[in-house]
Design a protein around this nucleic acid. Structure first.
Lengths: 338, 338
DNA sequence: GTCTGGCACTCCCTCCGCGCGAGTGCCAGC
DNA sequence: GCTGGCACTCGCGCGGAGGGAGTGCCAGAC
């Protein structure tokens, strides 16, 4: 167990290193933080912290730098979430309120997050699986060809072509449309399958094949989680870091293009509240020297998707966490209103 | 006017420089290309090319490097478009054919283009303005709230909320839906405004306000070109260039995030065929040391959107142009089929 | 006129050695 | 357990030397 002062020292090291981007030495620490002890004492503490693996020195006789483990302790025990100021909150709200549709909400959120944190922002589109159905529409494009349009309460629209086994009349179509909507409107996706399973029985035998086809297309659309999309912004911020970063920036850019990986990463946030993954805690190799700060957001009480930022492990965690949390909150509000 | 041999020398300089990424000298030129003259002769030619502004030397007593003007001449007069090989064409086709919807087509196209050219790929979503209407759907969400869904022949779907000035009955809604579709289905967007202008007259006076609102929302959607979206991929390829590139990569990443700028850039391609913008020919400052190769693509004979790549001015123009052209062709095919 | 070989010159790039300074570890004393 | 002092270690920046690639120019050959 580390003494109180040693924790203070670790906190000071993290704060200074984040600020200056340079290894921090014992003398600088005593000067910039009122620790009330001499550099020699701090040196002992630093040696202890290094033994425990919280800090490391890039080379002998250089200052100390926090390790992933050090950041982890800092985030868990030594720092809170820095709340946004009132003007910042107003700015967030104003910026998001101008959105005209779902794409716009996501695009604005990405830009906002990237600007606030000065890092790479990642926003997942509101997921289908946890939302409810607003409306299902069926359009006849050709005698045996339908288009199925699904509209969700988050404003997302999905469409699918349906090739019917047999021609399907306009009146049967209207009937199916009406029955379908009366059963599934305002229902959660998860409940839809059993709400429609007996639907074909209400139709003439020759139409049942088509009805079944439509229903299975609908169910496919509902579960199609791999369709989940995300938007990324602020990649130019990657260039702000270390001048040696050219070598580091490439794997990060590559990782950012693998949307599947990112979605998995974001998806790991289970508990409510902001999740932080530091350095090697990220499964993906390209992100081993970055940290991911993410949180769920949603229109109701429940999260429908995730958003977050990717930055160097040397980041301002309290500020970033505050920004991510605040943005998630306001996006949720906007989605609930629309 | 430049002599034939001097043009050959320029071509050789461009090819070597693109290959080696290093300034090319007179000796290396005579060795690697069978020019049949001595280095001294080449030096004279190089001096002449430099006077004309086609090449430059980074420092005194270094090799020569093509200028933007030199690349321009190379592209216009000295090099053709390098066609894809048959296996490459098959691979393109196979890769694109697995697409399930429009988003997927665009996503695959971006990845394909980025991999083929090893550069940054940019693909604009098929534009609304030049396509035709497949179907217009109206849904009643609340007594005085409608949702307008527009489906285009390229499979794109746009939705808008419409707040009605007065409640609008189901029968009137069905009527409007039917009339609207009979008039605009399969019509080009440009023709829609005059096709619907007298539509309110067919309705009861109390419904005319709503009909007008719906129509104006529809027209807005049709012309809303600023809504045009694009997808970007292969940004990791930026790191392949010059080790001094960290300074250069940033403005490029920033420019890539300004979708409006990119759309404008792509939009400049007027004539059919591949457009190449070299270095300072690009209006945007961040792209002054990059070239943009773009081309229109479309489902029918006519282009509905653009796609292209962004890379360093020092790029393999014939190969890039060939890849861009081939991809555009096959995407057009895929769109026409779906 | 045009091409060629030769020659002097110009810089860039790399390497090497040096000194400086920040920072450390350790130890004796309070 | 804290403090001041001291010797030691490296990383970093600077300046000079050497090598090399490439040029420009000129006199001569075809």
């Amino acid at each position: 167990m580390l003494s109180e002062r040693r924790l203070q020292v670790l906190r000071a090291i993290v704060q200074d290193y984040v600020g200056t981007e340079e290894p921090v030495g014992s003398k600088a620490l005593t000067e910039r933080h009122g620790l009330g002890v001499s550099p020699a004492t701090i040196r002992n503490d630093m040696a202890a912290l290094e033994d425990e693996g919280y800090i490391a020195q890039p080379h002998t006789s250089a200052g100390r730098v926090p390790t992933d483990k050090g950041y982890r302790l800092f985030v868990d025990k030594l720092a809170g979430v820095k709340p946004m100021t009132a003007p910042e909150r107003r700015a967030i709200q104003n910026f998001l309120e101008g959105s005209v549709d779902l794409d716009d909400v996501v695009a604005r959120t990405v830009r906002l997050l990237a600007q606030l944190t000065r890092q790479v922002a990642v926003v997942q589109y509101p997921s289908l699986t946890r939302s409810t159905v607003r409306h299902v529409e069926l359009l006849s494009l050709a005698p045996a060809r339908l288009m199925l349009v699904l509209i969700t309460d988050t404003g997302r629209v999905e469409q699918r072509m349906v090739d019917c086994p047999a021609p399907f009349g306009e009146s049967a179509l209207a009937d199916l449309r009406a029955r379908l909507n009366s059963r599934v409107a305002a229902r959660r996706f998860a409940d839809v399958p059993k709400l429609v399973e007996d639907l074909p029985d209400a139709f003439d035998p020759e139409d049942r094949g088509t009805v079944s086809t439509v229903l299975s297309t609908l169910l496919e659309t509902l579960v199609e989680e791999n369709e989940e999309r995300l938007m990324i912004g602020g990649t130019a911020n990657l260039t702000r870091f270390g001048h040696d970063f050219p070598l580091t920036i490439r794997p990060v850019l590559e990782a950012l293009e693998e949307h599947v990986v990112l979605l998995k990463l974001l998806g790991e946030a289970k508990d409510p509240g902001v999740m932080v993954r530091i350095g090697h805690e990220n499964a993906h190799e390209g992100l081993n020297s970055t940290s991911v700060v993410s949180v769920g957001y949603g229109s109701g009480g429940e999260a429908v998707a995730k958003l977050g930022v990717v930055g160097p492990t040397r980041m301002d965690y309290p500020g970033t966490m505050g920004a991510v949390r605040a943005v998630a909150r306001y996006v949720g509000q906007i989605l609930a209103e629309s």
